[in-house]
């Protein structure tokens, strides 16, 4: 028996919004430690890794490890039927071929349940090596989304250059050139507005705007985003989900021909 309950459907809606543009389907691996999903996008350029800890749920029960392959478009349709404040419960029997998603209004007067067929997805799991990143940047998630959106107008690619002075995002194309520099913030009253750079050595990497913009669909989940970079390895874009877990996107860099 698997049962996981969250106080607010809005969190699950936001999580789905954050992954459904990159992935058509995904396997939710459930164990007593929580729920994990790892999948590459169709082009195998990026990897999505979602972790939801069992202690972040209002109720969590997982008697046996369970892998639930789900069509994320179908799941999005079901979640559209929930009000943001509804309780949401995901339930499945052991070895079941369906999952039940139940919504309850705060006053318990409306209860709806939706059944969805599970899929047997033959998704490969990739081992992500421990990496000592040369630069780790923490910045407001909205600012990062704005920069990615703005620079996508100029080029398919954005160059991210991180030094101890700050982080620079650049793009150039037919229209011209664009450079956005962010300096590390000095004294900040609000932690969520801070730009913090931890640099071991400077790094310059090039990434596809299209994927960065897809990652920023996670912006409603978190006030801050963390970018981890190292020469010649994938960028990690991490959004923490308050008291529940995180979503990490890995993006392969663009390399010299």
């Amino acid at each position: 028996m698997f049962e996981a309950r969250l106080g607010q459907a809005t969190i699950l809606k936001k999580i789905l919004d954050a992954i459904k543009d990159l992935l058509n389907e995904g396997t939710f691996d459930c164990s007593d430690s929580g729920i994990q999903l790892q999948a590459m996008d169709n082009s195998h350029v990026s990897l999505v890794s979602l972790t939801l800890r069992s202690d972040g749920f209002d109720k969590f029960r997982c008697d046996r490890n369970l892998s639930m392959g789900m069509n994320l478009g179908s799941m999005a349709k079901i979640l559209k039927c929930a009000n943001n404040e509804d309780n949401v419960t995901i339930k499945a029997q052991d070895n079941a071929d369906t999952v039940t998603i139940m919504f309850e209004s705060a006053n318990q007067e409306k209860v709806s349940d939706y059944g969805m067929k599970l899929m047997n997805l033959d998704q490969e799991h990739l081992g992500i090596p421990e990496t000592d990143y040369s630069c780790v940047v923490r910045m407001p998630a909205m600012e990062f989304a704005r920069i990615c959106r703005d620079l996508a107008q100029f080029s398919e690619s954005v160059v991210i250059c991180c030094t101890k002075e700050g982080v620079k995002f650049s793009a150039s194309g037919d229209v011209g050139t664009a450079n956005i520099k962010l300096a590390q913030t000095g004294n900040v009253d609000k932690e969520e507005e801070a730009v913090i750079i931890e640099m071991q050595e400077p790094v310059t990497l090039t990434f596809a705007c299209r994927y960065l913009n897809a990652f920023t669909k996670a912006t409603p989940l978190s006030t801050q985003v963390q970018l981890s970079m190292c020469a010649d390895v994938p960028l990690v874009v991490e959004y923490r989900i308050n008291e529940l877990g995180h979503i990490r996107y890995y993006l392969a860099p663009k390399i010299e021909d």
Binding site: H44, V45, S46, L126, P234, Y250, K254, D257
Partner: peptide
């Protein structure tokens, strides 16, 4: 001209 690399080049199958 820069080419897009694959995430598979960096992570190995488990």
């Amino acid at each position: 001209k820069k080419l897009q690399s694959s995430i598979r080049n960096y992570f190995t199958a488990k």
